[in-house]
């Protein structure tokens, strides 16, 4: 092959491995999953040997109270962690947005809970929630109060607290970055006009941060639907079905109940939910940006 020809081909050569991997290990499996969700399929068969059952898996799931329960648990979990984390994270960012010594240390240490393995996070919290050994009950006893059965009586609350510990820093860091990249002129103008701290936050800072906050919220929400290991280690979905989120239910349906077709249909439901969420949020973001642009153009024309 001549050098010139090789040069002309090089972009394709550069892209080929990535393209190949994505198709083989991501697109093909997703297609395979959708195909499999219409079949009665167990782990000992190849997909080709299974029988076609149409929408039966989807229909069964729709009427399955256990599956509905897990959808409700997932939504409860995701919505509460994201809401609480957004409030705490953004609040802390607004509060600590000043030149403090030790700020970079805080940011560094704040990343730790997100970086260590979810399995380890689950392990730490399972220990801390332990009815006799854990620090929480130790503290309660020291204060002369009744110890609490964290992981059995308040399982959902317990996993929500653990998730807040792990992921609030994510929102804090993003919100802080957003705050520090705000145009200084707008804040300066507000200060000269005599806006109080609260007024600055509500009328200037928050609206300007909105696009970033929406994306942050979206990313966090997506990740909240993906949480699995922490809950698996802490409660394994129990007691009963109180903490069995959809991701856990999928994995149990596939490995314990050995119904791959049903698990695939469940995966598809989860994927569709996430897709809907993403599209909604992105549309909203586009709309906000569009409105901001329009307002800006109107302001420029008025000058």
């Amino acid at each position: 092959m001549s050098t010139a020809k090789l040069n002309r081909l090089s972009p394709y050569l550069f892209l080929a491995p990535a393209f190949l991997v994505m198709v083989l290990a991501l697109l093909y499996p997703l297609g395979y999953m959708i195909y499999g969700s219409f079949r009665d399929w167990n782990p000992s068969q190849a997909l080709g040997e299974s029988t076609f059952v149409g929408l039966k898996n989807y229909y069964t799931l729709w009427h399955d109270p256990n599956f509905r329960e897990s959808v409700v648990v997932t939504l409860k979990f995701a919505i509460s962690v994201v809401t609480i984390e957004m409030f705490i994270g953004v609040g802390l960012a607004l509060l600590l947005d000043r030149n403090l010594r030790g700020m970079s240390l805080l940011r560094t240490l704040f990343i730790l809970p997100m970086m260590i393995a979810p399995v380890v996070v689950g392990l730490i919290w399972k220990y801390m929630y332990h009815p006799t050994l854990g620090v929480f009950n130790d503290t309660l006893r020291a204060l002369g109060m009744e110890p609490v059965e964290w992981l059995s009586q308040h399982a959902l609350l317990s996993i929500i607290i653990a998730d807040i510990w792990q992921w609030t820093p994510f929102i804090f860091i993003l919100a802080l970055a957003a705050l520090q990249s705000l145009p200084r002129s707008a804040l300066e103008a507000a200060r000269i006009d005599g806006a109080t701290g609260w007024q600055q936050i509500i009328h200037i800072k928050l609206p300007l941060m909105m696009p970033v906050l929406i994306v942050t919220c979206l990313l966090r929400l997506i990740d909240a639907f993906k949480v699995l290991e922490v809950i698996l280690v802490m409660t394994a979905g129990g007691p009963g079905l109180t903490t069995e989120i959809m991701a856990l239910r999928i994995s149990r349906t596939a490995t314990e109940f050995r119904e791959l077709g049903v698990a695939a249909a469940m995966s598809n439901y989860l994927l569709m939910m996430l897709l809907l969420l993403t599209v909604l949020m992105l549309t909203y973001n586009r709309w906000i940006e569009y409105r901001a642009n329009k307002a800006q153009r109107a302001a420029e024309e008025a000058l």
Binding site: A264, L270, L271
Partner: peptide, 8 residues
């Protein structure tokens, strides 16, 4: 989610 990739 990784759980979605599990089955396929």
């Amino acid at each position: 989610p990784p759980a979605v990739l599990l089955v396929p």
